[in-house]
Design a protein around this nucleic acid. Sequence first.
DNA 1: GAGTGGTCTAGACCACTAA
DNA 2: TAGTGGTCTAGACCACTCA
Lengths: 250, 250
Amino acid sequence: MSRQLGSGRTTLPQQLAQVLRQRIREGHWSQTQRLPTEAELCAEFQVSRVTVRQALRTLESQGLITSRQGVGTFISVSDAMVHTGLQELKSITETIREMGLTPSMRFSLKKIRPATPDEAAEFPGNPGGDVLELRRTISADDVVVAYVHDVMPMWVFGDDFDVDDLTGSVFAHLGKHTDVVPRRAVSEIHACRGLPAEWAPFAEEPPAPETLFLLLDQMQFDHRNRPFMHTEAHFIEGRFTFMVVRLAPV
Amino acid sequence: MSRQLGSGRTTLPQQLAQVLRQRIREGHWSQTQRLPTEAELCAEFQVSRVTVRQALRTLESQGLITSRQGVGTFISVSDAMVHTGLQELKSITETIREMGLTPSMRFSLKKIRPATPDEAAEFPGNPGGDVLELRRTISADDVVVAYVHDVMPMWVFGDDFDVDDLTGSVFAHLGKHTDVVPRRAVSEIHACRGLPAEWAPFAEEPPAPETLFLLLDQMQFDHRNRPFMHTEAHFIEGRFTFMVVRLAPV
DNA sequence: GAGTGGTCTAGACCACTAA
DNA sequence: TAGTGGTCTAGACCACTCA
């Protein structure tokens, strides 16, 4: 049997990975824990082996499958739990959704202001020199999981931007109203006790002063390699599990 | 000019990435911050474009370069600092060495004992049922940075193993004396206050009870997808900076 | 329009595993 | 020995950037 992949905006390996991920989730191969051979996947989806292998490598880097030379390709998570690893760049709300929870978000600050000297250096080539500062509280199933502070240069939004347009996921807004496509982020990870003092005026449900946090301090870059967003996200330890799939150097 | 890559145990993209990394470090292209075109790299190293692109993708995932369609490929770190990200599987000592520091290690426990029921479930197919338990303190430039607890099934080492053989890096020992090749690891990351109580008999330079740690709790798998090592590493917050390069899904 | 990176193919050969 | 995944090539066409 042969199936037709679409010819849309996404790449073939991306589409194929999506289909295979779906089948794994649905338990298509749960009896044997084994996927079809690469040749069989080529035939079914009418794509080259390189394309199949790239899709499989994506799933492997997500920890879903592993291959053994001379043997085959196997599912490496037995249950339906599909963790999204930190090595993959996704919005926080999307990550929550993939965990099967319902994300929600409350903005406690949306402010356009001049960039500080540090911010001006972080975001070179920002005509006007203004930045948008956000503070928001993110919840999963109505339980607060993170306090997030973002700074973005105003070139991202263009001239006809109204801060009230920004209501839900920042990534979703970017996709709809701008040509900024997030491509990579560089994050530092820290352990941290208590929320920084500067949060005091903004945290509407302030955590206990001794609360432990995982701090993700990250700069995000778009498809043209422009830094477009600096995020400090404080995740309450224990309410959110971070995973990383680490692979040996190619 | 054409250069010959070796034909050794490593793949061509791997070798090419190594050469390019070296050149970046040496500042070959620091004037323009721009690498040769893909076609030029193909010609110089006598490899196909697919090979060149795979090497470039490796460097990109390490945060060293970025490409822009229609323009070129550019160096994305200006100074000689080369961070190794968490998304890459390396031994702790190697990571320390790449930061330009000198790693050292002190074992406070090396013990062969029967596996607990949990451990037996973690390591299926372990004839004899014994595990090697390690507790070690890792230092960088003689400053303690991490407390590490490892459990490994004894099949890893074979029959002629003497615990006294194990003196330095565990990964290095595996490479020399066994056929286990680390391939991937799945890590959970947590923030944590104080060292767990079970460390008390072993921590020779115990940290203050309120010390903040980043805990990496990881299971490592070898090239045949066998789980061979469970590691709980407590890193003292601030003495070690963890970075992750996060990429948008292919 | 010239040149760059982005995507995809068909096919070759090798290394490994298991029967 | 047959079948699997691992590696690599040559070449095609497209999308984007910039002069």
